[in-house]
Protein backbone atom coordinates (compact mmCIF):
# COMPACT_ATOMS: atom_id res chain seq x y z
CA UNK A 1 0.00 0.00 0.00
CA UNK A 2 1.30 3.47 -0.81
CA UNK A 3 1.75 6.00 1.95
CA UNK A 4 -0.90 8.61 2.73
CA UNK A 5 0.12 12.04 1.41
CA UNK A 6 0.08 14.60 4.21
CA UNK A 7 0.32 18.39 3.95
CA UNK A 8 1.40 20.25 7.08
CA UNK A 9 0.31 23.82 7.87
CA UNK A 10 2.54 25.84 10.25
CA UNK A 11 3.24 29.49 11.06
CA UNK A 12 6.35 31.63 10.46
CA UNK A 13 7.68 30.92 13.93
CA UNK A 14 7.65 27.13 13.71
CA UNK A 15 9.05 27.37 10.14
CA UNK A 16 12.00 29.25 11.58
CA UNK A 17 11.26 32.21 9.29
CA UNK A 18 11.14 34.57 12.25
CA UNK A 19 9.15 35.74 15.26
CA UNK A 20 6.61 38.52 15.63
CA UNK A 21 8.58 40.74 13.19
CA UNK A 22 7.87 38.21 10.43
CA UNK A 23 4.18 37.66 11.29
CA UNK A 24 3.19 39.35 8.02
CA UNK A 25 4.85 36.55 6.05
CA UNK A 26 2.72 35.58 3.04
CA UNK A 27 1.76 31.97 2.37
CA UNK A 28 4.57 29.84 1.00
CA UNK A 29 4.44 26.27 -0.24
CA UNK A 30 7.57 24.26 0.48
CA UNK A 31 8.19 20.76 -0.67
CA UNK A 32 8.81 18.23 2.08
CA UNK A 33 9.15 18.61 5.81
CA UNK A 34 9.74 21.76 7.83
CA UNK A 35 10.23 22.14 11.61
CA UNK A 36 7.77 20.11 13.72
CA UNK A 37 6.94 18.06 10.63
CA UNK A 38 10.04 15.99 11.39
CA UNK A 39 8.43 14.59 14.52
CA UNK A 40 5.15 13.86 12.73
CA UNK A 41 6.88 12.20 9.83
CA UNK A 42 8.87 9.99 12.18
CA UNK A 43 5.63 9.04 13.93
CA UNK A 44 3.90 8.13 10.66
CA UNK A 45 6.56 5.50 9.91
CA UNK A 46 5.55 3.62 6.72
CA UNK A 47 1.93 4.67 6.80
CA UNK A 48 2.06 8.32 5.79
CA UNK A 49 4.47 10.98 4.63
CA UNK A 50 4.50 14.77 4.76
CA UNK A 51 4.84 15.73 1.10
CA UNK A 52 4.67 19.49 1.54
CA UNK A 53 4.46 22.24 4.15
CA UNK A 54 2.45 25.44 3.87
CA UNK A 55 3.88 28.32 5.90
CA UNK A 56 1.99 31.50 6.68
CA UNK A 57 2.53 34.41 9.07
CA UNK A 58 -0.10 34.63 11.82
CA UNK A 59 -0.80 38.34 11.32
CA UNK A 60 -1.06 37.97 7.56
CA UNK A 61 -3.55 35.12 7.92
CA UNK A 62 -5.78 36.83 10.49
CA UNK A 63 -5.69 40.27 8.90
CA UNK A 64 -6.38 38.97 5.39
CA UNK A 65 -8.58 36.07 6.40
CA UNK A 66 -10.50 35.40 3.18
CA UNK A 67 -7.54 35.95 0.83
CA UNK A 68 -5.14 34.00 3.00
CA UNK A 69 -7.59 31.15 3.42
CA UNK A 70 -7.97 30.87 -0.34
CA UNK A 71 -4.23 31.06 -1.00
CA UNK A 72 -3.47 28.42 1.62
CA UNK A 73 -6.28 26.17 0.43
CA UNK A 74 -5.10 26.37 -3.19
CA UNK A 75 -1.59 25.44 -2.15
CA UNK A 76 -2.85 22.50 -0.10
CA UNK A 77 -5.15 21.36 -2.87
CA UNK A 78 -2.34 21.47 -5.45
CA UNK A 79 -0.48 18.78 -3.47
CA UNK A 80 -3.44 16.37 -3.66
CA UNK A 81 -3.10 15.27 -0.05
CA UNK A 82 -5.03 12.50 1.73
CA UNK A 83 -4.70 14.27 5.08
CA UNK A 84 -3.88 17.73 6.43
CA UNK A 85 -2.30 18.52 9.78
CA UNK A 86 -2.37 22.06 11.16
CA UNK A 87 -0.04 23.13 13.96
CA UNK A 88 -0.30 22.25 16.79
CA UNK A 89 -0.81 25.84 17.91
CA UNK A 90 -0.59 25.33 21.71
CA UNK A 91 -1.69 28.61 23.34
CA UNK A 92 -0.82 30.95 20.45
CA UNK A 93 -4.16 32.68 19.78
CA UNK A 94 -3.79 33.90 16.19
CA UNK A 95 -2.02 30.67 15.21
CA UNK A 96 -4.87 28.69 16.79
CA UNK A 97 -7.49 30.59 14.82
CA UNK A 98 -5.46 30.08 11.62
CA UNK A 99 -5.09 26.33 12.26
CA UNK A 100 -8.81 25.98 13.02
CA UNK A 101 -9.81 28.00 9.96
CA UNK A 102 -7.53 26.05 7.62
CA UNK A 103 -8.52 22.65 9.01
CA UNK A 104 -12.25 23.46 8.86
CA UNK A 105 -11.93 24.75 5.28
CA UNK A 106 -9.97 21.67 4.21
CA UNK A 107 -12.73 19.42 5.55
CA UNK A 108 -15.57 21.51 4.17
CA UNK A 109 -14.21 22.72 0.82
CA UNK A 110 -11.73 20.02 -0.16
CA UNK A 111 -13.48 17.13 1.57
CA UNK A 112 -10.16 15.93 2.97
CA UNK A 113 -9.72 14.93 6.62
CA UNK A 114 -7.80 17.43 8.74
CA UNK A 115 -6.56 17.56 12.31
CA UNK A 116 -5.16 20.25 14.52
CA UNK A 117 -4.05 20.58 18.12
CA UNK A 118 -4.17 23.37 20.70
CA UNK A 119 -4.36 24.24 24.36
CA UNK A 120 -7.94 24.19 25.69
CA UNK A 121 -7.88 27.95 26.41
CA UNK A 122 -6.70 28.93 22.94
CA UNK A 123 -9.53 31.06 21.44
CA UNK A 124 -9.34 28.90 18.33
CA UNK A 125 -10.39 25.87 20.41
CA UNK A 126 -13.81 27.26 21.27
CA UNK A 127 -14.31 28.55 17.75
CA UNK A 128 -13.56 25.31 15.96
CA UNK A 129 -13.95 22.36 18.34
CA UNK A 130 -17.32 21.35 16.88
CA UNK A 131 -16.03 21.55 13.30
CA UNK A 132 -12.59 19.96 13.54
CA UNK A 133 -10.97 17.37 15.76
CA UNK A 134 -8.64 19.43 17.97
CA UNK A 135 -6.17 17.44 20.04
CA UNK A 136 -5.79 18.84 23.53
CA UNK A 137 -2.19 20.00 24.03
CA UNK A 138 -0.13 21.75 26.68
CA UNK A 139 0.07 25.54 26.60
CA UNK A 140 3.55 25.78 25.10
CA UNK A 141 5.76 24.16 22.49
CA UNK A 142 7.34 22.12 25.28
CA UNK A 143 4.30 19.89 24.79
CA UNK A 144 5.21 19.06 21.17
CA UNK A 145 6.34 15.50 21.84
CA UNK A 146 3.15 14.64 23.76
CA UNK A 147 0.98 16.30 21.12
CA UNK A 148 2.60 14.39 18.28
CA UNK A 149 2.09 11.12 20.14
CA UNK A 150 -1.68 11.72 20.23
CA UNK A 151 -2.04 13.43 16.85
CA UNK A 152 -0.24 10.79 14.77
CA UNK A 153 -2.57 7.84 15.50
CA UNK A 154 -5.67 10.06 15.30
CA UNK A 155 -4.51 11.51 11.96
CA UNK A 156 -3.99 8.01 10.58
CA UNK A 157 -7.44 6.94 11.75
CA UNK A 158 -9.01 9.97 10.09
CA UNK A 159 -7.08 9.31 6.88
CA UNK A 160 -8.22 5.69 6.86
CA UNK A 161 -11.80 6.70 7.62
CA UNK A 162 -11.83 4.53 10.72
CA UNK A 163 -14.32 4.97 13.55
CA UNK A 164 -13.30 7.79 15.90
CA UNK A 165 -13.80 6.86 19.52
CA UNK A 166 -14.74 9.18 22.39
CA UNK A 167 -12.81 12.36 23.13
CA UNK A 168 -11.39 10.79 26.27
CA UNK A 169 -10.02 7.77 24.42
CA UNK A 170 -8.64 9.64 21.40
CA UNK A 171 -7.43 12.77 23.20
CA UNK A 172 -9.35 15.46 21.27
CA UNK A 173 -11.26 18.28 22.94
CA UNK A 174 -14.92 17.38 23.66
CA UNK A 175 -16.80 18.45 20.54
CA UNK A 176 -20.41 18.09 21.65
CA UNK A 177 -20.82 14.66 20.06
CA UNK A 178 -21.38 12.13 22.83
CA UNK A 179 -19.70 8.81 22.06
CA UNK A 180 -20.14 5.64 24.11
CA UNK A 181 -17.23 3.52 25.27
CA UNK A 182 -16.33 1.10 28.03
CA UNK A 183 -14.40 2.58 30.97
CA UNK A 184 -11.94 0.52 32.99
CA UNK A 185 -13.87 0.91 36.23
CA UNK A 186 -17.62 0.61 36.71
CA UNK A 187 -19.67 3.77 37.22
CA UNK A 188 -20.23 3.33 40.97
CA UNK A 189 -16.50 3.05 41.62
CA UNK A 190 -15.84 6.13 39.48
CA UNK A 191 -18.56 7.96 41.44
CA UNK A 192 -16.99 7.14 44.81
CA UNK A 193 -13.52 8.12 43.52
CA UNK A 194 -14.93 11.41 42.23
CA UNK A 195 -16.69 12.16 45.52
CA UNK A 196 -13.53 11.45 47.54
CA UNK A 197 -11.58 13.84 45.26
CA UNK A 198 -14.30 16.49 45.56
CA UNK A 199 -14.36 16.18 49.35
CA UNK A 200 -10.57 16.49 49.54
CA UNK A 201 -10.59 19.52 47.23
CA UNK A 202 -8.58 17.62 44.62
CA UNK A 203 -9.17 18.10 40.90
CA UNK A 204 -11.70 15.87 39.12
CA UNK A 205 -13.30 15.92 35.70
CA UNK A 206 -17.04 15.60 35.34
CA UNK A 207 -18.06 13.10 32.69
CA UNK A 208 -20.86 15.35 31.48
CA UNK A 209 -20.47 19.14 31.69
CA UNK A 210 -23.86 20.78 32.22
CA UNK A 211 -25.23 22.16 28.96
CA UNK A 212 -26.38 25.74 28.39
CA UNK A 213 -30.13 25.51 28.37
CA UNK A 214 -32.22 26.91 25.58
CA UNK A 215 -34.82 28.82 27.60
CA UNK A 216 -37.83 29.93 25.59
CA UNK A 217 -39.64 33.13 26.55
CA UNK A 218 -43.40 32.56 26.72
CA UNK A 219 -45.30 34.35 23.95
CA UNK A 220 -47.40 37.41 24.74
CA UNK A 221 -51.00 36.87 25.84
CA UNK A 222 -53.70 36.82 23.17
CA UNK A 223 -55.59 40.08 22.80
CA UNK A 224 -58.83 38.49 21.67
CA UNK A 225 -59.14 34.86 22.67
CA UNK A 226 -62.86 34.78 21.83
CA UNK A 227 -62.05 35.03 18.16
CA UNK A 228 -58.75 33.17 18.16
CA UNK A 229 -58.05 29.96 16.29
CA UNK A 230 -56.48 27.53 18.75
CA UNK A 231 -54.51 24.39 17.87
CA UNK A 232 -53.62 21.41 20.03
CA UNK A 233 -50.09 20.02 19.92
CA UNK A 234 -48.86 17.29 22.28
CA UNK A 235 -45.77 15.34 23.18
CA UNK A 236 -48.03 12.92 25.05
CA UNK A 237 -48.33 10.55 22.09
CA UNK A 238 -52.10 10.67 21.42
CA UNK A 239 -52.74 9.03 18.03
CA UNK A 240 -55.64 7.39 16.21
CA UNK A 241 -56.06 3.81 17.45
CA UNK A 242 -53.43 1.52 15.94
CA UNK A 243 -50.82 4.30 15.70
CA UNK A 244 -51.02 4.52 11.87
CA UNK A 245 -47.68 6.38 11.50
CA UNK A 246 -45.87 4.00 13.86
CA UNK A 247 -44.59 6.81 16.08
CA UNK A 248 -42.03 5.19 18.37
CA UNK A 249 -42.86 4.69 22.06
CA UNK A 250 -39.56 6.37 22.88
CA UNK A 251 -37.03 8.40 20.90
CA UNK A 252 -39.63 9.41 18.31
CA UNK A 253 -38.26 9.85 14.80
CA UNK A 254 -41.40 11.63 13.59
CA UNK A 255 -44.64 13.39 14.50
CA UNK A 256 -48.17 12.85 13.26
CA UNK A 257 -50.82 15.26 11.98
CA UNK A 258 -54.41 14.14 12.41
CA UNK A 259 -57.74 15.66 11.48
CA UNK A 260 -60.28 16.32 14.23
CA UNK A 261 -62.54 18.36 11.96
CA UNK A 262 -65.65 16.45 12.98
CA UNK A 263 -64.52 15.14 16.33
CA UNK A 264 -66.03 16.48 19.53
CA UNK A 265 -64.64 13.97 21.97
CA UNK A 266 -61.69 11.55 21.91
CA UNK A 267 -63.06 8.20 22.99
CA UNK A 268 -61.52 4.92 24.06
CA UNK A 269 -61.04 2.58 21.12
CA UNK A 270 -60.69 5.41 18.58
CA UNK A 271 -57.64 7.12 20.03
CA UNK A 272 -54.80 5.93 22.25
CA UNK A 273 -51.33 6.90 23.34
CA UNK A 274 -48.13 5.67 21.68
CA UNK A 275 -46.05 7.07 24.55
CA UNK A 276 -43.94 4.54 26.47
CA UNK A 277 -42.91 6.74 29.34
CA UNK A 278 -46.00 7.01 31.53
CA UNK A 279 -48.89 4.92 32.77
CA UNK A 280 -51.06 4.71 29.62
CA UNK A 281 -54.16 3.26 31.29
CA UNK A 282 -55.87 6.59 32.05
CA UNK A 283 -55.07 8.27 28.77
CA UNK A 284 -56.25 5.22 26.82
CA UNK A 285 -59.51 5.25 28.77
CA UNK A 286 -60.08 8.91 27.97
CA UNK A 287 -57.54 10.43 25.55
CA UNK A 288 -59.03 13.90 26.22
CA UNK A 289 -57.04 13.76 29.45
CA UNK A 290 -53.90 14.37 27.41
CA UNK A 291 -55.40 16.12 24.39
CA UNK A 292 -58.46 18.07 25.63
CA UNK A 293 -60.58 18.11 22.47
CA UNK A 294 -63.83 17.75 24.46
CA UNK A 295 -63.28 20.87 26.56
CA UNK A 296 -62.13 22.96 23.61
CA UNK A 297 -65.22 21.96 21.63
CA UNK A 298 -67.35 23.19 24.54
CA UNK A 299 -65.40 26.43 24.67
CA UNK A 300 -65.89 26.78 20.92
CA UNK A 301 -69.63 26.36 21.34
CA UNK A 302 -69.77 28.81 24.21
CA UNK A 303 -67.73 31.35 22.26
CA UNK A 304 -64.87 31.29 24.73
CA UNK A 305 -62.51 30.59 21.86
CA UNK A 306 -62.99 31.33 18.19
CA UNK A 307 -62.26 27.97 16.66
CA UNK A 308 -60.39 24.76 17.36
CA UNK A 309 -57.94 24.07 14.50
CA UNK A 310 -58.97 21.13 12.30
CA UNK A 311 -55.75 19.23 12.90
CA UNK A 312 -53.75 18.26 15.93
CA UNK A 313 -50.07 17.36 15.95
CA UNK A 314 -48.65 14.64 18.14
CA UNK A 315 -45.30 13.12 18.95
CA UNK A 316 -43.74 11.21 21.83
CA UNK A 317 -41.50 13.18 24.18
CA UNK A 318 -40.10 10.09 25.86
CA UNK A 319 -36.35 9.83 25.21
CA UNK A 320 -36.67 12.01 22.12
CA UNK A 321 -33.53 14.05 21.47
CA UNK A 322 -33.94 17.80 21.97
CA UNK A 323 -32.55 18.41 18.48
CA UNK A 324 -35.29 16.30 16.92
CA UNK A 325 -37.98 17.94 19.06
CA UNK A 326 -36.77 21.34 17.88
CA UNK A 327 -36.93 20.25 14.26
CA UNK A 328 -40.50 18.94 14.59
CA UNK A 329 -41.56 22.10 16.40
CA UNK A 330 -40.26 24.42 13.71
CA UNK A 331 -41.98 22.41 10.96
CA UNK A 332 -45.25 22.32 12.90
CA UNK A 333 -45.04 26.04 13.70
CA UNK A 334 -44.63 26.88 10.01
CA UNK A 335 -47.78 24.96 9.09
CA UNK A 336 -49.75 26.42 11.97
CA UNK A 337 -48.80 29.96 10.92
CA UNK A 338 -49.75 29.21 7.33
CA UNK A 339 -53.12 27.89 8.56
CA UNK A 340 -53.82 31.09 10.46
CA UNK A 341 -53.60 29.58 13.93
CA UNK A 342 -53.29 32.27 16.64
CA UNK A 343 -52.33 30.19 19.63
CA UNK A 344 -51.35 26.67 20.59
CA UNK A 345 -52.08 24.64 23.68
CA UNK A 346 -49.08 22.36 24.19
CA UNK A 347 -49.73 19.41 26.42
CA UNK A 348 -47.00 17.27 27.85
CA UNK A 349 -47.05 14.24 30.11
Amino acid sequence: MSKFRVVHYINQFFANVGGEEMADYKPELREGIVGPGIAFNAGFKDEAEIVATVICGDSYFNENLETAKKEVLDMISSCKPDMVICGPAFNAGRYGVACGTVAAAVIEKLNIPALTGMFIENPGADMFKTKVHIVSTKNSAAGMRDAVKIMVPLALKLAKGEEIKSSKQEGYLPNGIRVNFFEEKRGAERAVDMLVAKLEGKPFTTEFPMPDFDRVEPAKALKDINNAKIALVTSGGIVPKGNPDHIESSSASKYGKYSIANVTDLVEGEYETAHGGYDPVYSNKDPDRVLPVDVLREFEKEGKIGKLHDYFYSTVGNGTAVKNAKKYASEIAKELLADGVNAVILTST
Binding site: E183, G187, R190
Partner: peptide
Protein backbone atom coordinates in the same frame (compact mmCIF):
# COMPACT_ATOMS: atom_id res chain seq x y z
CA UNK B 1 -27.69 4.72 36.61
CA UNK B 2 -26.43 3.08 39.79
CA UNK B 3 -23.11 2.71 38.00
CA UNK B 4 -23.39 -1.07 37.67
CA UNK B 5 -21.58 -1.12 34.31
CA UNK B 6 -18.42 0.18 32.68
CA UNK B 7 -20.26 1.77 29.76
CA UNK B 8 -19.86 5.54 29.67
CA UNK B 9 -19.72 8.42 27.18
CA UNK B 10 -17.79 11.60 26.52
Amino acid sequence: EMGFNKLSAR
